[in-house]
Amino acid sequence: MSQDVSTGGVIEAIEPEGAQAGVVKKTLGLGFWLAVGWIVLIALLALLAPVLPLKDPNANFIDIQGKGRPPYGPSGDHWLGSDQDARDMLSRTIYGARVSLVVGFSAVAFGFAIGGTIGLVSGFVRGMFDKITSFIMLVLLSFPALILAILITSLMERSLLTIALTLGILSVAPVGRLARSASLVFSEREFVLAARTMGAKPSHIMLRELLPNVLIPMSALALLGTAVAIVAEGGLAFLGLSVEKGSTWGKLILTGAQTRQLEEAPWIAFVPITALFLTVMALNFAGDRLRDYFDVRELAL
């Protein structure tokens, strides 16, 4: 809708002059590196899960020595407890990260490849192509995202590929919109004009002049988008619509969220919730810091 245009104007209108004057030097800060550290740690754990000395996530460790029936609370044996089938929560959570992270990262990669390209090109060439793609993006944006996601996933078989693809399609429009606005801004700049005057081909200008500049503000969106995709996958899983085979964080939370489970063994739900929460927060925080660092305003909406 046109709300983007009108707020853009409003924000500019009430922005005081010289708001940036007081800012001397910007740093990413310790928090940013902590967040990145956590993301790298989780990614490494997920990647190396088969090599690490973890318990089999699908084995049932029924304890005959008198601890009684599962679920077992956290102990030396099971650091984060076990679920109702006596499966180790630590290794289940780490294995669950594999699907969640793969879906998150590949959905964003898809959104960037398609949406980013369309946005970059339409911001540069404008005209009819821009009008048509902008309308398609608007249509995509006026669907409630989660309804569209369950619509697609319910009509297709639910493999890792289709889930990642569905969320990827959903990220095309937001990514495309930002890429377009960034590309529009940079197309007006002197260095693009200079390249044009020197007779550079449009493809050369887009790849060599625009792309590196557009990628900078987009890097923050990549982190924020990954967080959104991971949450969306969790939401689908929570509705019973995620990947059929293997465990994901959303599926783990769903099994722990039944009233009986919550009463007897709250850790079954709260271990994956904590992992998910910390990861999403780390991605959001890192994205936020990057956004401030590069001073990208329009990302806020």
Binding site: A227, G234, G256, L262, F277, V280
Partner: peptide, 21 residues
């Protein structure tokens, strides 16, 4: 920041656990 980063299904489980159960 925490509220923004908490997925709604996780928040639902948390609030349900603390305030209802």
């Amino acid at each position: 920041f925490g509220f923004i980063s908490m997925p709604n299904f996780a928040l639902a489980v948390l609030l349900y656990y603390v305030f209802a159960l």
